[in-house]
């Protein structure tokens, strides 16, 4: 699947549904739950932070090779590596836990790999999960 959304402002759920309806997605519900979560967290991050005015694009690609699903999200927004963020301290008490900051952590934990590159002026996030 290859899809381009431009501009992306306000399209978070439309982009998520487009990726989740890709023919490359598995049928297994448990896997779909994890993939939806990973896609939501990654897409939301881009829609909210890539472009200060929301006026920019996002390209989503999915493919399967040797039983591994790859989801690639690219944007030309502010260079930003979401993987630079430190993992949350999950041992803190409820009083001490900060609100938020769990999205990309969940994406990393639920997928087999999440990689970031800055190529040709674009942010490129590649999410991989074995589905067969």
């Amino acid at each position: 699947m290859h899809k381009r959304f431009d501009p992306i402002e306000g399209l978070t759920s439309i982009i998520i549904e487009a990726v989740m309806s890709s023919e490359d997605m598995p049928a297994d519900e448990g896997l779909l739950f994890k993939l939806r979560l990973a896609v939501e967290e990654a897409v939301e991050n881009i829609v909210n932070y890539a472009y200060s005015d929301g006026a920019g694009y996002l390209e989503a690609d999915t493919s399967v090779k040797d039983g591994v699903l790859s989801i690639v999200l690219q944007d030309a927004g502010v260079p930003f590596n979401p993987l630079d963020k430190e993992d949350p301290d999950i041992t803190l008490s409820a009083e001490d836990r900060p609100i938020g900051g769990l999205g990309i952590f969940l994406c990393k934990k639920l997928m087999d790999s999440v990689e970031y590159e800055f190529v040709n002026g674009c942010n490129k996030l590649t999410i991989r999960k074995r589905i067969a």
């Binding site: 739950f33 939806r36 979560l37 939501e40 967290e41 939301e44 409820a94 009083e95 836990r97 609100i99 938020g100 769990l102 999205g103 969940l106």
Partner: peptide
């Protein structure tokens, strides 16, 4: 059926409030 981090942040807010 499903919760993302957006749901988690609200459950944490609720837990903080009851405490």
């Amino acid at each position: 059926e499903y919760t993302s981090s957006q749901g988690l942040r609200l459950f944490l807010m609720l837990q903080k409030s009851v405490l």
